[in-house]
Design a protein around this nucleic acid. Structure first.
Lengths: 145, 145
DNA sequence: ATTGTTGCAAATATTTTGCATCAAT
DNA sequence: ATTGATGCAAAATATTTGCAACAAT
């Protein structure tokens, strides 16, 4: 990664990195801000946002951003995958013929089935963590919360 | 789906559904609002949001929402998948041993490797659509836009 | 001196909510 | 009459940005 992009490793940036290392997990900008503020009480939220950007562009950390920022709505109720353009953020539908293909094949089929150049995908699993499962509610109740 | 949840299929709701059918694709609330307003000039954006919610809860349409609304940042640069709790929205890391497993096996491994009950996943491919590819810029340029 | 960085506040963008009014049963 | 739905405006949330002051080379 191009760590040279960070021209000055200021106190603020050092503390942000150090704090993220301590925190672990996947903190939000705000969570990082609260922790960093304990060490640098004068830091502003804007600086945290700016530096998280700079540090991830330089490869020190990774930004996990939502695929799309706005909610979208789909009239098509059939099972299908979505294909997102990394430039214009358009979402297209893609039907995958064989549902049990390995990931690699999947990626390749998506590439040839669509007219996209595929750079990557995001695979995210959804479930209930052990703590939430212990609460033992029914799925309906959870989804209606 | 429980379409009985929609107690009254008001004019506004009818027009929203009709418009979404015409529009196709994956419009945002605002895009839907603009189109619907042509037919019902007095409708408000709040009503559109409220009804998109109601209609998707009832199964008439599908809501494509970002997995998480806030940006998150990761100090861990190693390749790993994310596992999101549908209740508390916590994100945990999961290392997948064999990278060429079919999706089904993947889901099962994630279930047994973690302590999550897996309800589903979201697989989203990223690429450049044909129009954007035609513009023929280098990936670097695109990512820096 | 020049350029990068900061803190602050204001702006932006998206979505949600309170409330009085209106509509439907 | 009661309950649900609407329009409007204000609020809430998350993020970005303009700007003057400050820091580093």
């Amino acid at each position: 990664m191009d760590k040279s992009k960070v021209q000055r490793l200021t106190k603020q940036r050092q503390v942000i990195l150090e704090t993220m290392k301590e925190l672990g997990g996947h903190p939000t900008a705000d969570e990082i801000y609260v922790e960093v503020k304990k060490k640098l009480p004068d830091i502003s939220l804007g600086t945290v946002y700016r530096n998280l950007d700079v540090l991830s562009a330089a490869g020190f950390i990774k930004k996990i951003e939502p695929e799309h920022h706005q909610m979208r709505f789909d009239y098509n109720l059939h099972d299908h995958y979505h294909l997102t353009c990394i430039r214009c953020h358009k979402i297209e539908d893609i039907e995958i013929p064989t549902p049990d293909d390995p990931m690699e094949v999947l990626s390749r089929s998506v590439g040839s089935l669509s007219k996209y150049g595929i750079f990557g995908h995001r695979l995210e699993f959804f479930g209930l963590c052990s703590e939430c499962r212990k609460k033992g509610k029914r799925l309906d109740d959870i989804l209606n919360e």
